[in-house]
Design a protein around this nucleic acid. Structure first.
Lengths: 160, 160
DNA sequence: AGTGAAACCAGAAGCCC
DNA sequence: GGGCTTCTGGTTTCACT
């Protein structure tokens, strides 16, 4: 996975930042912001996709409005010979799992969970303990979340 | 923030899942998948946006390809009278901070950092310690990351 | 690489069921 | 609430610089 860095200029970086904030801006809008025409912007974006700098486009969902109101972090500790990718693979099968981070050091992994209520959380943690070779967990309730990626401007224009 | 839950049916949920995977599918495509016409899909999406279930649309960026190859979690401990929102506000000003979670329990907050190298990480942690009323930090290097939101299908079709 | 004009096609709106 | 048709306008391609 030794991806050498593509050559990007300031315009590319500005486009990336704009698309991260709102991936549905019009090509002409983006062009106005960075000082290019719409076709030029399109070719830039195509290139960024081809290079793998942009890996996809996603809708930001407010899971609280779907009834999944609780969030928690669970630290996982595994038996010694567990491979990192197995930890990750086991955890991400659960729909409650939003993110998995394998780490160097004491907890072997951090799992971010989204659940509907405490009973649901208990079930999810039980599942985690069952799957794989977990030797122990420690769970931390989340009181508030802030994500840079979620700092999108509201879905006003909606070209797509 | 007591948002009562909007009434969503299975089609809504299927649309949300599809848009989370790829927010740039054509309305007609989405309609084919869920068994509706394109205008009907548009009305559904408009409603989901209006309800605040969909809060935005963002491009998924591979920060490793931008040279920000290292990731870390830093646990923050603050002096007793620090307000949660102040913790969050202080951390998110740093460009290195990707996510901030305030928690109930031992660490007061978890901060996910993205940096270019170890020197950069040291500077970011120093900043965190300076800003706000941090009494201590403990940092964990991340070996691998998996995010449900990043499981987008590649940017093939590109309507917008 | 970028611009500008033209063609094409997806999205938005109106209307009827 | 959904489908169909029309029309608007953004995206895309092409020719040129």
């Amino acid at each position: 996975m030794m991806s050498d860095l593509p050559q990007l200029d300031d315009v590319d970086r500005e486009l990336l930042a704009a698309l991260e904030r709102n991936s549905r801006r019009r090509l002409a809008d983006l062009g106005e912001q960075v000082g290019l025409s719409a076709p030029a912007v399109k070719r830039r974006i195509d290139r960024l996709e081809r290079l793998g700098v942009i890996t996809g486009y996603t809708a930001v969902i407010d899971h609280e409005k779907l009834g999944w109101a609780l969030e928690a972090f669970t630290e996982l500790r595994m038996i010694g010979n567990t491979r990192l990718e197995d930890i990750e693979a086991a955890a991400r099968d659960l729909p409650e799992v939003q993110q998995v981070f394998t780490t160097a050091g004491d907890p072997d992994a951090l799992v971010r969970l989204r659940v509907q209520d405490m009973a649901h959380l208990r079930r999810a943690i039980d599942q985690l303990r069952r799957s794989g070779q977990v030797t122990g967990t420690k769970t931390l309730m989340v009181l508030s979340t802030w994500s840079r990626a979620d700092r999108t401007t509201g879905p006003r224009p909606r070209p797509e």
